[in-house]
Amino acid sequence: MPIMIHSEIVRGEQSADGEIVNERIAVELEQVRLFNDVMRGQLQAVAEATEIAAFRIAERLHVLDREVAKLESITSDTTAPAEGVRQCISRMAGGLFEAHAQIQFQDVVRQQIELIVQALGQLDEHALQLARSLRDPGPSVAQPSVAERLDELYSGYVMDRQRVAHDVALQRETPSTGTAPLRTELF
């Protein structure tokens, strides 16, 4: 559905007062767009910072892996290594294994943030078109409504947690797909 509210406003006969009001709203929308730009930049910076931090952690873990492997090698050459040392090394190796796996959180978070940045870009476009319509009450160009933009956003989600958060925010039920999908599945 195209944006109707502002289209109706701009199509009607307007007094000088009406034009002033439209101009004020347009200026406000531009301020909102600036705010939006700042938020997008901040979120992008968060995504980049977590990516850098996660990569550095992964690099350190990689170095620790090699050190643990060396320790394993040294103790295997020793005729009777202390059992406590062996157990300690084994625990370290296990911990490193899981730490490597946990680093995947960053990829999940990055994708969530990138989609928010993209959505804010759509909001920006919406505000821009609205401001243009207010300033230039010519023939209106159909723009996607906020509801349509939200639907488009929904279709772009790649995780169930995104879909659920979206549905919760809109106070609606998440469509049920029967049983929850398995985290690991062989075909």
Partner: peptide, 30 residues
């Protein structure tokens, strides 16, 4: 992948995939 949707899995299966693991996966799962 982070994607868990069944329809995507089916698309992957049809394309020739053998299995699907959702991120983040534990080392054991993997």
């Amino acid at each position: 992948t982070t994607e868990s949707q069944q329809s995507k899995r089916m698309e992957a299966k049809a394309a020739g995939a053998s299995g699907w693991i959702v991120k983040p996966a534990t080392a054991d799962e993997l």
